[in-house]
């Protein structure tokens, strides 16, 4: 990983222009946002061109951005009733099949995230593509470019219902034969919708609606308060102390 993250980001900007949006770099991995129209073209270039040569698709997964950034517990406001005790919201695991939240028209709800690895440059890259239509999310398939995408795309189709256009064999992979629904969507209940047992009278396995109740103990909270900033304060203080120490040694050195 010789080139700096900034130089790498520049490289993508120069090559692809406004077809990709270069996101931030975190822990050495650049994120590219690509439209479905440019998806295949960009990926092919990422694999074949000398500067990129991402030989391997390490990982591909679906994402459902419904309820992103929503908390179940108001931690900022206090009212006359005291601090909000009641858990409100429809976070993961808090609803059953009948009471599942209605997926309003969330913009850019479904996304596909791919992690690429270049062995030649020892570099990783994350590319993301949002499906344009939330009702019927369709994204072009990458199987032609990296064959390892095959099962990952099947998995994303099974769990999120993202359809990969051009996939040779888009079957369910994880869920049971004859399963309905896409279990990793945020509006699918954590407890599921059917349960299976052996019926000794009918002498076969039967499917019935689930009998367990949703139960999640810990509310989902979003906090962005000062307690997570103490580190920065500490570090600033440490840096200042070191600076003073360095100045002192320098001054002493001059004296002697």
């Amino acid at each position: 990983m010789s080139a700096t993250p900034k130089a790498i980001s520049e490289m993508f900007r120069d090559r692809f222009g406004d077809r990709v949006a270069v996101g931030e770099t975190f822990s050495g991995i650049v994120t590219l946002e690509v439209d479905t129209d440019a998806w295949l073209e960009v990926c092919r270039a990422l694999r074949d061109e000398e500067d990129f040569s991402y030989e391997q698709l390490t990982d591909l997964c679906g994402l459902d951005y419904l309820s992103y950034g929503q908390s179940e517990w108001d931690t900022t406001d206090a009212s006359t009733d005291g601090f909000g005790r009641a858990v409100e919201g429809m976070g993961p695991g808090r609803f059953d099949w009948a009471g599942r939240p209605e997926a309003r028209n969330v913009k850019q709800r479904f996304g596909v995230v791919v992690h690429l690895l270049s062995f030649r440059h020892n570099r990783r890259l994350r590319i993301r593509c949002h499906a344009p239509d939330e009702g019927m999310p369709i994204v072009p398939s990458l199987v032609e470019i990296w064959s390892s995408a095959n099962w990952y795309e099947r998995e994303a189709f099974d769990l999120f219902g993202i359809i990969f256009e051009g996939h040779p064999d888009l079957r369910r992979i994880m869920t049971d034969y004859g399963f309905t629904g896409h279990p990793f969507r945020k509006d699918f209940p954590l407890i599921g919708n059917v349960e299976v047992r052996y019926d000794s009278q009918k002498k076969r396995v039967v499917y019935e609606p689930v009998q367990i109740e949703p139960r999640v103990g810990v509310p989902r909270v979003l906090r962005d308060d000062s307690r997570y900033k103490t580190d920065e304060v500490d570090q600033a203080a440490d840096a200042r102390a070191e600076q003073i120490a360095a100045e002192d040694t320098a001054a002493n050195g001059r004296k002697s």
Binding site: R220, V221, L222
Partner: peptide, 9 residues
Amino acid sequence: YLVSDGANK
């Protein structure tokens, strides 16, 4: 691959 939206989960 971990995505956090700033929550405790």
